[in-house]
């Protein structure tokens, strides 16, 4: 049995979708089909991939309109009678075919206040308990596939790249902010540069995460609540004003 892949071919100037017929075999994933097209029909088809095991986050694309890892999307999920659309991530500029320029993400990452540990204990070490670190271990599962960034409507439709860090980097901030050894505060970053107030928690980032990180419930909303603590809670603001205390550094 064959399947038809409708693949975007083009670059930053524009392009079109082209259909390719691919023979199906058991256990086949979309990335296998893309490799078949490269080997038999279009050797110039550009596609970024690396591990083919859902660990590297390289082969992100939009398959039938949904942001997915091509290596983790089985061909038998789709009706063989319908063409399967494969397009690059729409929130980022296309370089060629299925490869897009995600370098903006790395620039955002550089602006996040880094890990700032408290002073070590007298023996020169730091100790953490498992119960303290459990929460942030979820965030360390992120493989930086940027599917959450792609599906986030603040970046995708409203194009707020100048004022919004996006779900991937809220996850990273959460991993630092909730770390038991870290003493820095990133609420000012989140409120100002990170633009967390632009997130209206519609949870698309959580829906597409291939690592099943509960991005909205466990990272974004807890961070929003910390921003409320420091910037919006009228009782806390009044208390800080009365006691002439600033926010945590």
């Amino acid at each position: 049995m064959d399947a038809v892949l409708r693949i975007f071919r083009g670059d930053a100037q524009g392009g079109q979708f082209q259909d390719y017929t691919v023979p199906l075999h058991e256990g086949m994933v979309v990335l296998d089909a893309i490799h078949h097209v490269q080997a038999h029909a279009a050797s110039d088809l550009a596609c970024r991939w690396n591990c083919k095991a859902g660990r590297c986050g390289s082969c992100s694309a939009e398959v039938d309109g949904k942001p997915k890892l091509m290596c983790m999307t089985r061909m038998d999920e789709f009706q063989p009678s319908e063409p399967i659309t494969v397009a690059p991530l729409k929130a980022f500029p296309v370089i060629k075919d299925l490869v897009c320029d995600v370098s903006w993400n790395y620039e955002v990452n550089k602006r996040i206040p880094p890990f700032h540990p408290k002073p070590p204990e007298p023996d020169g070490t730091w100790r953490m308990q498992q119960e303290d670190i459990d929460r942030v271990q979820e965030f360390r599962k992120c493989i930086e596939c940027f599917l959450c960034q792609d599906v986030c409507h603040v970046l995708r439709d409203h194009e707020k790249k100048d004022s919004f860090a996006g779900p991937r980097f809220f996850v990273r901030v959460a991993s630092l902010e909730m770390h038991p050894l870290d003493v820095a505060s990133r609420t000012a970053y989140l409120e100002e540069q990170g633009g967390i107030g632009l997130c209206n928690i519609t949870k698309c980032c959580t829906e597409v995460c291939p690592e099943s990180i509960r991005i909205t419930d466990n990272a974004i909303i807890p961070l929003k609540e910390r921003v409320v603590d420091d910037f919006y809670d009228p009782v806390r603001l009044a208390w800080r004003w009365l006691t002439r205390r600033d926010r945590a550094p």
């Binding site: 409708r6 975007f8 524009g14 079109q16 082209q18 259909d19 029909a41 729409k90």
Partner: peptide
């Protein structure tokens, strides 16, 4: 191979 016109965004 068949070409299908379309736009990405």
């Amino acid at each position: 191979m068949m070409v299908v016109s379309g736009e990405l965004r």
